[in-house]
Write a protein that binds this DNA or RNA. Structure first.
Lengths: 232, 232
DNA sequence: CGCTCTATTGATAAACCTCAAATACAGTGG
DNA sequence: CCACTGTATTTGAGGTTTATCAATAGAGCG
């Protein structure tokens, strides 16, 4: 079976397998399983037995975690070249989050058995994976601290900037979020309510920092927003 | 150099090296560096270059993360047999947290070079380390969600139960926390203020769920507390 | 016994959530 | 092209939770 050169290219520059030699990359690639997801497809659900790791090739995954009493938190987005569900490397676990496709999304997946096999074959892969896990750990710890220490509007600013980094595109008007994002989603990401998000965005719009519409946001003054996210 | 049999035993049952064969364990042990810390000694500080991983042999480490605007969060405690600072396996990073000894504490440390060498030599070590990182990730994600979704008193209940699990000891009166823990520390762990913790504990004391004194807590009704932590 | 550090408690205020109602927007089918 | 329908969003009022501040009490230590 010939490896798809496009996929190989993404794999090569991914956080998971960058640095590996060509032949190893091809081996890793051919042992994975390629899949396409439609928008809002659920790749896996919180509580399912964790069987596979997934690398995003195109599109985006949204990881959410649900609390018994109804509230939902967005854990993070997984962009092209990023890996998720490293937990699948260990048996007996369940996915702690739900993964949902944001727009049409392509992924490459490896099940546990293959993953463990690959890691014993190429220890550098295990180290890469470890690096991914540690990075994720650092990020969520930072967000945890922000949640404890900062006020809502500051957190909303950080949220908006994070979403921006996860795929904002430059336009003449500023930096635009290219996928639909509701106030509710922003609230789930920032740990607040859609009302508070709405109010806060209104204020920023009056200040000229952003332009927003229905499920659409353009940041017109990144600098001001960054400053605010850091100083409050 | 002969390995200390006591340390070998702890290493053998640790989350980091359990499952390894004796000779490998000895190899891992002898490449580590043993150190003793006095109470409140700082092992490493947030922002320091991350050079070593540490396994706690005796005692306990408290990991805290500091926010610019003064507030501090307790990220977790590291108990005997547990490992911390996996980040040290990668170059160019800094410790994202501060580690402080709670009581006299003994540790076994490996620097980055040795760690990477060991992981290439024994890939199962890399997988173990990955498992540790993933477990930590899951824990902090859960706490993140709790912080978003639950009220203070519920979080304080969870905090107390977590501290209990990290080394509570059974006495005739109930389960006692054997190391001094202030209201401020509980607040830093639960993401609130010492005043709110004090008030909440007072209420529980009146209900007969706990007995508390200066930097000392005994849980007399675990069941009630567990129930409350889950239902609110 | 006095000093210092921790804890308690009360009063007050700020931040933020909840709920309700009105409004804007996008897509659909006539 | 336009009315219609279902969401998404905005905005206001009011209430709750929890932080903040201040003052007091208690515990341990030399």
């Amino acid at each position: 079976m010939k490896p798809d050169p496009d996929i190989l290219k993404i794999l090569k520059s991914s956080e998971f397998a960058s640095g590996l030699k060509q032949e190893k990359l091809i081996d890793v690639l051919t042992q994975g399983r390629h899949a396409r997801l439609e928008s809002d497809d659920i790749l896996f659900s919180q509580g399912d037995p964790a069987v596979s790791c997934h690398l995003v090739l195109k599109g985006r995954l949204k990881l959410t975690k649900l609390h018994e009493q109804g509230r939902e938190a967005i854990v993070r987005y997984i962009d092209p070249g990023q890996l998720t569900a490293a937990i699948a490397v260990f048996k007996g676990s369940e996915y702690p989050v739900t993964a949902l496709a944001v727009g049409r999304t392509e992924i490459l997946s490896w099940n546990r058995k293959i993953m463990v096999h690959l890691m014993f074959k190429y220890p550098e892969l295990a180290i890469k994976l470890l690096e991914v896990a540690v990075t994720r750990l650092d990020e969520i710890q930072t967000r945890y601290l922000e949640l404890v220490a900062e006020q809502v509007d500051q957190r909303i600013a950080r949220t908006l900037l994070r979403i921006m980094k996860h795929g904002g595109i430059k336009t003449s008007a500023g930096i635009e979020i290219p996928f639909p994002i509701s106030r509710q989603e922003m609230a789930d990401y920032a740990g607040t309510t859609l009302f508070t998000v709405s109010r806060t965005l209104s204020v920023w719009e009056k200040k000229g920092w952003i332009k927003s519409g229905r499920e659409k946001i353009t940041i017109t003054n990144v600098h001001a927003l960054v400053l605010f996210s850091e100083i409050g």
